[in-house]
């Protein structure tokens, strides 16, 4: 019981301290004290290499004019996607009924439960219009 009180105090003190206006935290819905989400948030974060931070892909059909018709729709923005839409797509990739280039490799490695949780997770993320990062000139002092 004493342990529980200490945890409560710790968590409370954390919650009050996070009200500071720090940029960049608005899009994350879960908190570190929400144990339910810690498994799925790191799995979901793994999708970022192709689908962007919290599912906000910087590549979409609008800003990549040079893309061929074939790859239109790939690297989709997952943030804010309806739960049913993402679940259906992932299950389709998983059972082979949906045509895939690379997504079948991932969907087949996931459990049904993980697919449902990922869909729920991404549906709750705020959709933000993001552009690719701008590159710069390599400086002389770099190795």
């Amino acid at each position: 019981m004493k342990q529980f009180q200490v945890i409560c105090f710790l968590v409370l003190s954390l919650i009050t301290s996070v009200c500071l206006p720090v940029q960049g935290f608005a899009t994350e819905v879960s908190t570190f004290s929400d144990e339910q989400n810690t498994h799925i948030r790191s799995l979901a974060a793994s999708c970022a290499a192709c689908h962007g931070t919290f599912g906000n892909s910087v590549v979409n059909n609008q800003n990549i004019a040079s893309r061929s018709t074939e790859s239109k729709g790939a690297n989709a923005v997952l943030a804010g996607m309806a739960v049913t839409e993402l679940t259906e797509k992932l299950l389709g990739f998983r059972d082979g009924s949906r045509k895939a280039t690379v997504m079948h490799r991932h969907a087949k490695g996931l459990t049904i439960d993980e697919i449902n949780q990922l869909a729920a997770h991404f549906s709750k993320q705020q959709r933000i219009d993001k552009s690719p990062i701008k590159s710069e000139i390599l400086k002389a002092d770099h190795e």
Partner: peptide, 8 residues
Amino acid sequence: AWSQNIWA
């Protein structure tokens, strides 16, 4: 697309 998303 992979590179642009992983860089961002």
